[in-house]
């Protein structure tokens, strides 16, 4: 039994790991909250403005209007960016207590700095860190985890661009910090129900690492010494 477990760990450690990740908050002077999140070579910069005045046409009487913009590095934003924007917006709306700021606007701008796989999860992480930096009230934190299933059926977390291309299925989950529930999921490719559940379970495990990182970075930020 002990042996079998060891063998499994050896195998999993080769495929299942989060790349080194880093984050810097409050790096831009203009936005109310900003962060850059780096996962391996993938890097996203996020800026949050708000709560601020809102256009009358976009006003919602009982909560804040959240706008999310994702800007690609080359060219104009297209359908792909729109789809990602929606994923991020719905996740943020689920986490933010937007009813505390009725009839106001929150805008979140995400600038892609470099894409080397797991872009959407990096966007989600950068968004959460920026919202935290802006000091907006949130019911819970969230993080994004991308899982890929390769041709042999193995699960790879936080895949690089190359791994994404070689994968059979690709899924991204947003997971909340309180109950580790799935806030958003988006998938590509074909997979079985069993594989989906496995990926969710892996993502929940991986999310613990990310939330620990959030915790560490906030602790560092509000510590007196480095």
């Amino acid at each position: 039994m002990h042996n079998a477990r060891n063998a499994m760990e050896v195998e999993s450690s080769s495929t299942c790991a989060l790349r080194e990740f880093g984050c810097e908050q409050s790096l831009l002077s203009r936005p109310d909250g900003s962060s850059s999140f780096i996962q391996g070579d993938t890097s996203v910069l996020a800026g949050v403005y708000g709560p601020a005045d809102v256009k009358v046409s976009k006003e919602i009487h009982d909560r804040a209007t959240l706008e999310v913009l994702i800007q690609p590095k080359v060219g104009m934003s297209g359908v792909r960016e729109r789809a990602q924007e929606q994923c991020v917006r719905e996740t943020c709306e689920a986490a933010l207590l937007s009813s505390l700021h009725p009839r106001s606007s929150l805008s979140l701008v995400l600038q892609i700095i470099h894409d080397d796989g797991s872009l959407l999860s990096c966007c989600l992480n950068a968004a959460c860190m920026a919202l935290m930096d802006a000091g907006l009230p949130m019911g819970c934190l969230f993080c994004g985890v991308t899982c890929a299933i390769d041709r042999d059926g193995r699960i790879v977390t936080d895949p690089t661009m190359q791994q994404e291309k070689e994968s059979r299925a690709l899924m991204t989950f947003a997971i909340d910090s309180t109950e580790r529930k799935v806030l958003m999921s988006t998938t590509k490719g074909s997979f079985s129900v069993n594989e989906l559940q496995q990926c969710i379970a892996v993502s929940q495990r991986a999310s613990e690492k990310i939330f620990q990182f959030y915790r560490d970075s906030v602790r560092r930020r509000y510590s007196k010494t480095l």
């Binding site: 999993s12 450690s13 989060l18 080194e20 810097e24 790096l27 977390t157 892996v202 495990r205 990182f213």
Partner: peptide, 13 residues
């Protein structure tokens, strides 16, 4: 103080 970086974090599965 606002920046933090981690090493590769293995995910137990």
């Amino acid at each position: 103080i606002t920046a933090l970086k981690t090493e590769v974090a293995p995910v137990e599965m």
